[in-house]
Design a protein around this nucleic acid. Sequence first.
DNA 1: TATGAGCGT
Length: 82
Amino acid sequence: MTTLYIGNLPFSATSDLLRHIFEQVGTVRSAKIITEVETGRSKGFGFIEMATSTEATEAISRFNGDTYDGRVVTVSDSRDRK
DNA sequence: TATGAGCGT
């Protein structure tokens, strides 16, 4: 399994929306948008877990640099959670 | 209620 970092998302984006986007290139094991604890609103970035590294690589090449709601999103391998 | 660089309860 490979975890992807999705950055520069519009605040209107949801984990469900991310999941649907990444399902276009493979199996989404999990989708999560990070939200502010104090406000419950999106921090503008999130994480996607793909079933295989092949699908993850495909997702990066397809979606990195794409524009959603006027914002150019970043898609890349995530770093390890500490 | 709030926000724009960032790698997660």
